[in-house]
Computed example of a mutant assay.
Amino acid sequence: MASNLDTLVTVFGGSGFLGRNVVRALCRRDYRVRVAVRRPELAGYLQPSGKVGQVHTVQANVRYPASIEAALRDSQIVINLVGILAEGGAQSFDAVQAKGAETIAKAAAAAGAQLIHVSAIGADAESPSRYARAKAAGEAAVLAAVPSATIFRPSVMFGPEDQFTNRFAALARMSPVLPLIGGDTKMQPVYVGDVATAVADAVDGKAKAGATYELGGPEVLTMREIIEAILAIADRKPMLMPLPFGLARFKANFLQFAPGALKLTPDQVTLLARDNVVSDAAKAAGLTLEGLGIAPDSLEAIAPQYLWRFRAAGQFQRKSA
């Protein structure tokens, strides 16, 4: 019987938030993992994810096809996790999430490799959001090049290194007032570890070829409910100030240049105007975490394991009433 060590999996974007979790999941299943990133010298922290020699990093940039072809050479399976939340310089949504996805898919097809592509719930060619349109274009390009590709669309992901729960907890530590944008917008936050497990299951051959899965957590929550849960865990009590979308977009024109947790782009405001939940069609077809046999973890179960650091006295603080 063949060992998983005989299988080489190339992960594009393996140094990111989801990527490091996918690399760990693949290493636990004894696959050989090649991590293709723009700056391999900054991805050394991935080495302890596996045994000696199990993880290897190489340089690749989705804007340069030759680097993609070289990175996936001899790979049996290719995973594309490359994505950006905000544009900067040459890293545009179209270049990275549409044309970049197409470049990887064509290279995988030429190499005869299986392809797993991670997109996002909300990917829509008719969306007013450029991020969502680029995600949809990427999906279309992937299926055109590799019709047997498996696509995963996660909702907003949370976990120890996320830019979601950590962002709001950090803002609550900085300010007595938090702006609330899209307070009634529904989301289905999903634990990054569950998404990584789904991707690893697809590598194992447990997912349907040519299918699009929608991955959400066990609860559908409004944006207000999510932020309130984060604040309760971090034991912070800022006032939530609802901000109309028009005013939020105006402020985002300036905040898109802000550093760290303060950064907010107009396109992100546009995304917050639409619900981000698993569709009824995906549920009916079994194209969900539950359909893969994965019981998703809730925000309430996972977030306290890392958001304690935003409490005034850290892990030793007794939560106030």
Rank of each mutant, 00 (worst) to 15 (best):
G53W: 04
Y64E: 06
S49G: 03
E41D: 14
T57E: 08
I68M: 10
S49E: 09
S49R: 03
E69M: 12
A66C: 08
I79S: 06
G53P: 07
S49A: 10
N80Y: 09
Q47T: 08
P48H: 04
P40E: 08
I77Q: 05
P65G: 05
A43Y: 12
P65D: 10
I68H: 07
G44Q: 12
G50S: 03
V52W: 02
I77T: 06
Y64F: 03
K51H: 11
S67H: 07
A43P: 14
S75F: 10
N80R: 12
L42Y: 11
Y45C: 10
G50H: 05
V78M: 08
T57M: 04
Y64G: 00
A71P: 15
G50C: 04
Q47N: 02
S67L: 13
I77M: 07
N61I: 01
A60I: 02
S49M: 05
G50L: 01
V55P: 01
G53M: 04
A43E: 15
I79V: 11
I79Q: 05
Y45V: 13
N61C: 08
P48K: 05
S75V: 06
P48D: 06
A43N: 08
N61S: 09
P65M: 01
G53C: 05
E69Y: 11
R63F: 00
R73I: 15
H56R: 10
E41K: 13
T57Y: 09
D74F: 15
V52M: 08
V78P: 06
Q47P: 00
I77D: 00
H56L: 11
Q59S: 06
A60D: 00
A70K: 15
A66P: 02
Q76D: 02
A66K: 09
R73W: 13
E69N: 12
G44R: 11
P48A: 01
G53R: 01
D74W: 10
I77H: 07
L72R: 14
H56Y: 04
A71F: 12
G50D: 03
R73F: 12
I68P: 07
G50Y: 03
L72K: 13
G53Y: 00
N61K: 05
K51S: 04
Q47K: 00
E41N: 13
V58K: 01
P65Q: 02
E41I: 10
A43K: 14
E69L: 14
K51M: 04
L46T: 09
G53I: 03
G44T: 14
D74S: 15
Y64V: 10
D74A: 15
G44Y: 12
P65V: 06
V52Q: 09
D74M: 12
V78K: 10
S49K: 01
L72Q: 12
A70F: 13
E41C: 09
R63M: 04
E69I: 14
P65C: 04
Q76G: 11
V58W: 07
T57A: 04
G44M: 09
